[in-house]
Nucleic acid binder design. Structure first.
Length: 840
DNA sequence: CCTATGATGAACATC
DNA sequence: TCATCATAGG
């Protein structure tokens, strides 16, 4: 390793810090699936800029305000960066400046971004400037950064280091369980609403006690307080945190432990926070605490782009920054480098209606460009068809799919568009929607993994205890959980001892079988002689999850094939994850003993599993967008934040949809919708389309949709209207006309039949392998060629003897076979798993 | 204890 | 429209 002793720094100290920073970065690279580290880049390591550039270059091409921001030295700094004002440029150059000019060690910099993607982008751009320094920097989201600290000090908070992270789905289930336990009527107390109250309480750092006292004698509130209390208790017993806890507990950790706070305060000499307008109170507090000593806090944001209040974001954080940090410097970036005057003008008109914003005058020296095209279509199919044909027209004129994006308020709108785009042969890709790790079958597998890793994970337990069906019903499960509570042990332990309890007598064999299954998997884990992918493969099989889907394939096959593919995909994902890890570990530095024990343990299967589960929870954006890919991008406005496109189609800008119906009676929410509109409009560089439909299917009903109010306010000079005025039109097309139109395309849009036929497969009895833990080392499954398994081919199975393949369906390098055995009739199995001998 | 059925209610964005 | 939930019947 190369050590560059810097003035005044104790070499040993530097060594330690460097080591941890290095390992921390390994972690980071692992988490970002897009960061498939090239060996070349990886070995080009240095904790100092490898290319020492002339610092003056860092200021080149910057306007005076940008320069000022980059060169700012000590003390708090607020950069108000309007849309398209070169914000990222300023941040990255500032970091480069700090390192090269101010001689700040990279590991003394903490840079917080809003998304993982933004973090990757920031690192990339810094490296372009000064080489691979980012590997020892902490760059990431609040959640990811705090997780590092929390893992390390989990014990101080009373958690085990392998605590689980609950996603929204899990959280909901826990809330429901609490409601049930407290005998609260779910109709009077909507679980969703209660959960959101708990969530915002945590984001505001209101703990259970404070919530209770705040509720006072208010019946409703004190009931919610009870749920909050029960909820926290359950999480604690399950050794789990939810998303909000990650921040909440981090604050608590730093508040209650002076030594830890001091350590991180002195480590992070410079703190930068991007998208500061979207921080919540907990995040505010974290930043505050960490920067308390030196006050070298630089926040960047735009109050007009605050669009995450649903997540607890508090726009006051940015509005009050000057009050909170007295001697702070404020720099406004008001020159827009992105859009035409027309687009900017329209955007300004939309946002100007908001009150209580920081006055900014965004300007550009670009030309006026084309007018904004406003479309008033009859219905959603016409709207989508217009967009599709327009895209094709633009492409004929030399534009690229990759320069265009279609933005919408709600994911559901992508459906209609998809049909039309496909029809017209437009290349496109949809972002967002159900994420890979959120798919049911994937979550089931992950729940097994969680339970294997952390036996106390009650939430994972209840998810998988009867999945696949083991003939264990609500009553039995309730008994198990009651006993667990009474005896203060985990439900899994009750299962292990099921034969000791009278109430469980009847179901004891099944419970024991389940416990043995988990134990078997845990043995595999601790024995540590499998690759991670092989381990996951084994879990998918031993759990019976895979077999269950195969059985189901009998009837409803469309769905089943997808699900099997997802399970296979999960294995490849695990493989990739592991390979990345190995590659990183093969670097020379990895031989060092990291001071951080947690990261050290990433060496064995258990460590990999823990890291993998964390990634699944925190870094769920699996399908990363590759730049320069030539397809139209479809996404929500929220996920488009920070991006820009030559041409933008903003669809469904209708009252009730965008702005959503909930914003109706709340001026605050209305303002957020306007900000959202502002964000959408400012994504466009050259050309903007705003489209609406006079009628649209909402909740399966055709509804008349008025044009969004904030669009009506845009001046005529900026807009060219097609299909009608954006101002209220009294002329409605006859209903019947588009009724017929709808039924024509609706069928094509959703080809799946209305009633997904459920199959009546008999319940799954646990396989023999489950009861007997594995005695012999597990053989990795053989690679097979799916093409070998064709209908008519005769095969031999070690248990069922010889048989003939009736049908074969290739799936992800494997095949689902139906085999007619001479002795035991028809069976369904996966080719690879069955270990068949081909007889012909 | 499982499954099918029909009712019911939900739908906004993300770490 | 789609998914989840409660209920009834096997």
């Amino acid at each position: 390793m190369i050590l560059l002793p810097s003035a005044g720094d104790c070499v040993i100290l530097e060594r330690l810090i460097f080591q941890e920073a290095y390992i921390v970065d390994l972690f980071d690279q692992l988490m970002h699936s897009d960061q498939t580290t090239s060996p070349a880049a990886a070995s080009d390591r240095a904790d100092r800029p490898s290319v020492r550039m002339d610092p003056r270059q860092l200021l080149e091409g910057l306007n005076p305000q940008q320069r000022q921001a980059v060169e700012h030295d000590q003390g708090p700094l607020l950069i108000l960066a309007g849309a398209g004002s070169g914000k990222t440029r300023v941040i990255t150059h500032r970091i480069a400046w700090l390192i090269t000019v101010r001689n700040v060690r990279p590991q003394a910099i903490l840079a917080i971004t809003f998304t993982n993607k933004a973090a990757a982008e920031m690192k990339h751009r810094i490296e372009e400037l000064i080489g691979s320094v980012t590997r020892s920097m902490w760059v990431g989201t609040f959640h990811a950064m705090m997780m590092r600290i929390l893992r390390r000090f989990a014990d101080r908070l009373g958690f085990e280091r392998n605590f689980a992270i609950l996603d929204t789905d899990d959280q909901m289930k826990v809330v429901k369980a609490c409601l049930k336990e407290l005998k609260i009527d779910e109709k009077a107390f909507n679980a969703r609403a209660v959960h959101s109250q708990i969530s915002s309480a945590k984001n505001s750092l209101i703990d259970v006690e404070a919530f209770i006292s705040q509720a006072g004698s208010d019946y409703r509130q004190s009931r919610v307080a009870q749920v909050y209390q029960a909820y926290q208790e359950k999480l604690r017993q399950s050794n789990s945190m939810d998303f909000d806890d990650i921040l909440f507990e981090a604050v608590r950790l730093l508040r209650e432990n002076d030594d830890i706070l001091t350590e991180y305060q002195s480590r992070f000499q410079y703190i930068l926070v991007d998208e500061y307008q979207d921080t919540n109170h907990a995040q505010y507090q974290l930043v505050h605490m960490l920067s308390a000593g030196h006050g070298n806090l630089c926040v960047v944001g735009d109050d007009d782009q605050s669009i995450y209040s649903f997540r607890g974001a508090n726009i006051q954080n940015i509005l009050d920054f000057e009050k909170d940090f007295k001697r702070c410097k404020v720099i406004k970036l008001e020159q827009n480098y992105r859009s035409t005057k027309t687009i900017l003008g329209a955007a300004n008109q939309v946002i100007r209606e908001n009150t209580g914003r920081k006055e900014k005058a965004l300007w550009t020296d670009h030309g006026h460009g084309e007018q904004i095209t406003f479309l008033r279509a009859e219905n959603h199919s016409e709207e989508s068809r217009y967009i599709a044909t327009e895209i094709q027209r633009l492409v004929k004129n030399g534009q690229h799919y990759g320069d265009m994006a279609i933005l919408y308020r709600v994911n559901a709108l992508s459906r209609n568009l998809e049909a039309a785009l496909r029809e017209q042969g437009v290349l496109y890709r949809i972002f967002g929607g159900t994420r890979f790790y959120d798919r049911r079958e994937v979550k089931d597998v992950l729940a097994y993994l969680r339970l294997v890793l952390s036996p106390r994970d009650e939430i994972a337990f209840s998810r998988v205890i009867n999945v696949p069906r083991r003939g264990l019903g609500d009553v039995t499960i309730a008994h198990v959980q009651d006993l667990a509570e009474r005896e203060q042990v985990s439900s899994l332990e009750i299962c292990e001892q099921a034969d000791r309890y009278d109430v469980l007598q009847r179901m004891a064999p099944r419970l024991l079988g389940f416990a043995a299954q988990i134990q078997g998997m845990r043995d595999l884990l601790t024995r540590d002689d499998l690759t991670f992918a092989a381990f996951l493969d084994q879990v998918e099989q031993d759990s019976g999850l895979l077999q269950e889907i195969i059985d189901q394939q009998e009837r409803s096959k469309d769905d089943a094939v997808d699900r099997i593919e997802n399970m296979k995909e999960l294995i490849s994902d695990a493989l990739e994850f592991e390979q990345n890890l190995r590659q990183l570990q093969s670097l020379p530095e990895a031989e060092l003993q990291p001071e951080d024990e947690d990261l050290h343990q990433i060496d064995d299967l258990t460590g990999i599993l823990r890291a993998y589960l964390e990634r699944a929870a925190l870094y769920a954006d699996m399908d990363q967008d590759k730049e320069n890919q030539d397809y139209v991008r479809l996404m929500t406005i929220h996920s488009a934040k920070g991006l820009e496109f030559q041409t933008v189609f903003l669809v469904g800008t209708e009252e009730g949809l965008f702005p959503g119906f909930r914003a109706r009676d709340s001026e605050a929410e209305m303002e957020e919708e306007r900000r959202l509109g502002y964000v959408a409009i400012t994504r466009a560089k050259q050309k903007l389309y705003i489209t609406t439909a006079r009628s649209r299917l909402v909740f399966g009903q055709t509804m008349a949709m008025p044009v969004a109010h904030f669009i009506q306010g845009i001046d005529d000079q900026y807009i060219e209207e097609i299909g009608g005025s954006r101002r209220p039109d009294y002329q409605q097309a006859p209903h019947g006309a588009f009724q017929a139109f709808d039924s024509g395309t609706a069928g094509a849009a959703c080809p799946a039949g209305s009633a997904p036929s459920r199959d009546a497969a008999g319940r799954h009895v646990f396989p023999g392998s489950a009861i007997r833990p594995h005695q012999t080392p597990v053989q990795p499954l053989p690679d097979i060629d799916p093409a070998d398994y064709r209908p008519g081919v005769r095969v031999r199975h070690e248990k069922f003897g010889s048989g003939k393949i009736v049908s074969a369906l290739p799936v992800a390098g494997d095949a689902i076979l139906q085999i007619e055995f001479q002795s035991s009739g028809k069976k369904r199995m996966m080719a690879r798993m069955a270990k068949l001998e081909i007889l012909d």
